[in-house]
Design a protein around this nucleic acid. Structure first.
Lengths: 150, 150
DNA sequence: GTTTTATTATTAATATATTAATGATTAATA
DNA sequence: TATTAATCATTAATATATTAATAATAAAAC
């Protein structure tokens, strides 16, 4: 009876622990973190995004994003721009240096992505996506069920 | 051309972000964290484990483990025991309260696990494991390849 | 047998995650 | 329109991740 090591959180964690170091080698060459790259990547092909939009795209929690953006700003890769229409919003814009970093890194990121894609067939890749989606379906319902029987 | 949002790190992150909150509801009822539960779970059916063994089983990095074990010790769920044969080793042992927590939580953990298993067929579950394993195969080789062309 | 090398747990420094709360602002409502 | 509720970015407090380094001990090599 496989338990702990074969639970959903553990197999996903093992997978991520195997995958991220491959990317991280590249990140370290440019002295940025996983999270900092996610933000830069989100700004690709975008003039600007609000902090909230970046949070939704990158899956990075808003409170973490504050510090991440601080450090990207300090490194000169992004700027903050308070919105005039809605003064609650802050637009994040990539600087010239930020664009150059993106141009420099994106091809290598795609190489890495391709190297992973080569390890499975297109059908397997589709299956993976489909099964993961299935596991996250009815999330709300299951939460209610679990909540009731606790 | 699907890119960022459909990259391997992002689909795995989305999956984890959907899954962990279901477990976290239970963890919060017992006032422990994901990581703290992982350690307790690893000690299930074990008299003792070294810090290193726990790190390997739980995938938690050793430096993080120090603090995690500190807090579990402070909560009275584990004890530390310096080995006599090899004084570099520290054995982690669950206390009575730790055992009781495990007994209390494990059934509900398994309920949650079962609720996820019900969302996919056994074949799909096998496929998921197989595909994830495939993506992590030849890890060393691919790292060498990437290292060379950088 | 002593010097060198490995191993284990730990510390240190910085970055991020999690949860709750706050200040500023805008939208909704009575 | 005065008040209330919602939204956005941020702060605060605690826990964890990442990388490099260290102290204590043990194993290996000379």
């Amino acid at each position: 009876m496989p338990k702990f090591l074969d639970s959903l959180p553990m197999i996903l964690s093992r997978s991520i622990d195997g995958i991220m170091p491959v990317y991280r080698t590249l990140f370290q060459e440019h002295a940025i973190t996983d999270q900092q790259w996610r933000v830069m990547r989100a700004l690709w092909e975008q003039k600007h995004l609000t902090s909230k939009q970046i949070s939704e795209i990158t899956l990075l929690p808003s409170p973490s994003l504050v510090g991440i953006l601080d450090r990207l700003e300090k490194k000169g890769f992004i700027g903050r721009l308070r919105s005039v229409e809605d003064r609650r919003l802050v637009y994040i814009v990539p600087t010239q240096a930020g664009r150059e970093l993106q141009e420099l890194m994106l091809p290598k990121i795609e190489e890495i992505h391709d190297s992973f894609m080569k390890k499975v067939t297109p059908e397997e890749w589709g299956e993976l996506n489909r099964i993961l989606d299935k596991l996250n379906e009815y999330k709300t319902t299951s939460e209610i069920v679990l909540g009731n029987r606790v």
